[in-house]
Write a protein that binds this DNA or RNA. Structure first.
Lengths: 234, 234
DNA sequence: TAACTATAAATTGTCAACAATTAGCTTTTA
DNA sequence: TAAAAGCTAATTGTTGACAATTTATAGTTA
């Protein structure tokens, strides 16, 4: 977690920008645990900067809902509760549904071609790395990111990629823990891509929404089981 | 809705919070013109504070997309372009559609009763104050705000009330400029309320989305006409 | 022992001075 | 005249010290 990890390229426009990006990654990767306190002095020393720029970064992360601040009391890393995850998936369903709808009209033929190629790559990845959940997760987000881009709506893209997706990445519980899931997801991705290729906005939106609400049901089950384990084990 | 009501009393938790709320109102009300530059020294003196807390407030407003910053160059009030408004209405359609869908299931009977009362009040307001667009606008937002609340989804509420609605309030162009519009809108509000009262999520979402995309078409026409006037007149 | 108060320590909030960068202006040169 | 280079002024970025508030601790009392 030292400042010398992969932080490196951190566009060094300003210290505030740097520490903003670095902290963001640290939170998403879990280097800063959920619910843990952000002690300004401590973090500032860690990054070798003063508290001024750090506080500005904190305020921006607060805006992204990655940090929660209580005036005078302190700032903590957000805790992803069960109900919060449900809320996020609900918002995501609405936004990505719209995203897919727009993509069906606006995505270029070339980009649709690339989408097909991406799916092929995913297919072979699933065959090989049965257990490597990480790549599957990133691949999944990659697919969704491209559709968000194709919506050609800056707001949609921003909300999804710089807010919701980050929070999803924070949630370590992979929906791919069940071995059938990746294949199922791939099938659904194919269907969505097909609807876009056929320029059918209604269908694209319908399938995307079904895809996401389905994903939530899986995640929800996993979370439920975990909380039961936690209640009975310790 | 706490932070958006009577900001005047600026909850004086911290200076940063105060100036955040005050600046937000100033931007929304147009006291700070769109595209105008935020000179830190100037604003700081104006509020009688130092630049530290001000800069924190600026970063938060940046997160709300009310300010746009260029490193080392300065910060400006966002300019609501035609295409940006279209993007906002698109996002709004997705989020409010979902909001209405959830409200149909989750809104309490009491709250539905209050919603009916609100509509009655609007009806009488329309009869009386034919021209007073301001109240009609606020009444419209009030209706939408209540449905967002009924969704019982903190994320939806936040995104809508503390981001999108603020930007809509910045857009001075009232869709009620055409005299038929307020009545039409009221009718649509009644239909949506009815769908919620009948606990019909599908219909509630459908009607809400239609309502918002219809509103955008009106606004769009107004904006188009204005830009034509601007091109030919000066 | 439990609860309450008061004090001390730790942490956040604020400030004013200083450093770094950019934008605009003047001057120089082809 | 036009373009380029260098300088000046204005603005943003950063810092460390100081003030205000909260939390933890210890001591007192019922």
């Amino acid at each position: 977690m030292n400042q010398n990890t992969i932080t490196s390229i951190s566009e060094r426009q300003t210290l505030s920008d740097q520490v903003f990006h670095d902290l963001k990654e640290a939170i998403i990767k879990g280097d800063l645990a959920q619910g843990s306190k952000i002690t300004e002095d401590e973090i500032a020393k860690q990054y070798g900067i003063s508290r001024g720029p750090l506080r500005e970064a904190i305020r921006r992360l607060e805006g992204l809902r990655l940090l929660v601040r209580k005036p005078h009391a302190g700032t903590r890393v957000v805790t992803l509760t069960h109900s919060m995850m449900e809320e996020i998936y609900t918002v995501r369903e609405a936004l990505e549904g719209m995203s897919a709808r727009l993509a069906a009209t606006r995505m270029s033929d070339d980009d649709i071609g690339e989408l097909h190629q991406l799916l092929k790559k995913h297919e072979s990845t699933i065959d090989q790395s049965q257990g490597k959940e990480y790549f599957q997760r990133e691949g999944d987000l990659d697919f969704h990111f491209r559709i968000a881009q194709a919506s050609n709506n800056q707001w949609l893209m921003d909300l999804l990629s710089s807010e919701l997706y980050q929070l999803l990445r924070m949630c370590r519980h992979r929906s791919s823990q069940t071995p059938e899931r990746p294949l199922r997801a791939l099938q659904e991705h194919k269907q969505i891509t097909e609807a876009i290729a056929q320029r059918d906005p209604e269908l694209a939106e319908l399938l995307m929404r079904r895809h996401i609400s389905g994903a939530w049901k899986i995640v929800k089950d996993i979370l439920d089981n975990e909380s039961i384990e936690k209640d009975t084990q310790p």
